[in-house]
């Protein structure tokens, strides 16, 4: 395997560069995926049937907590990648771990939020609005869940094998994924919650 040392390790081989480009393209597809969900959300937003509307059910506190947790985790994964570039494995693992813990906390609040919605009568089967709301949030939440498992796998691999061309590549790609989920959340926050609360 030829390693190009003029580049950061995660870009070190041709395969690594292709992995990163491939992942960017995948994120393009993800943008379409969430774009479709948002478009559907805007279409169905006011079609609440006999169920509650967004203004009836949204609670600002858990939403603020979730936003804070996820945005901070995006910052810490950035720090993790920074530490990785400096070759400081321990610092990197610490930040990586904090990221996952924050993600887990986010997920817990989101699960609470879901229980709340069902409790106040906005279940999956209530109306077109409730269905698209839970589906959009759920798709994002499922991505976060997947990210937690994936991130855990990467941490274990770094512990076992250290910072290699492969593990750095995976970590970098994971960070792209994590930032992306953050961006999606910002859209959810602005166009679903804030718009709904107004």
């Amino acid at each position: 395997m030829k390693i190009d040392h003029s580049q950061p390790l995660e870009y070190g081989t041709e395969q690594n560069k292709m992995n990163i480009l491939g992942f960017w393209i995948f994120l393009g597809a993800e943008i379409m995926l969430f774009g479709t969900l948002f478009a559907s959300y805007f279409t169905l937003e006011n079609r609440i049937g006999s169920g509650p509307s967004g203004a009836d059910i949204f609670e600002i506190t858990p939403i603020i907590i979730e936003t804070f947790l996820l945005l901070t985790s995006s910052f810490t994964i950035g720090l993790a990648i920074h530490a990785m570039r400096l070759g400081r494995q321990k610092a990197m693992l610490t930040f990586f771990g904090i990221t996952l813990v924050l993600g887990l906390a986010f997920l817990s609040v989101e699960i609470y939020e879901f229980f709340h919605y069902v409790h106040v009568g906005a279940g999956l089967q209530t109306s077109a609005f409730s269905a698209i709301l839970l589906t959009t949030l759920g798709t994002h939440g499922a991505h976060v869940t997947f990210g937690l498992l994936w991130g855990l796998g990467i941490i274990l691999q770094i512990k076992k094998r250290g910072l290699t061309v492969e593990t750095t590549n995976k970590s970098f790609i994971f960070s792209l994924y994590w930032h992306f989920l953050d961006v999606v959340w910002i859209f959810i926050f602005s166009f679903i919650y804030l718009k709904g609360l107004m």
Partner: peptide, 24 residues
């Protein structure tokens, strides 16, 4: 996404594309 919504309508009783409860 379209297929996922269709699947949910058929398997989980959501109302994305139905004609009642706000579906479209």
């Amino acid at each position: 996404i379209a297929l996922a919504m269709g699947t949910m309508d058929r398997l989980f009783g959501t109302h994305f594309f139905s004609i009642d409860n706000g579906g479209m």
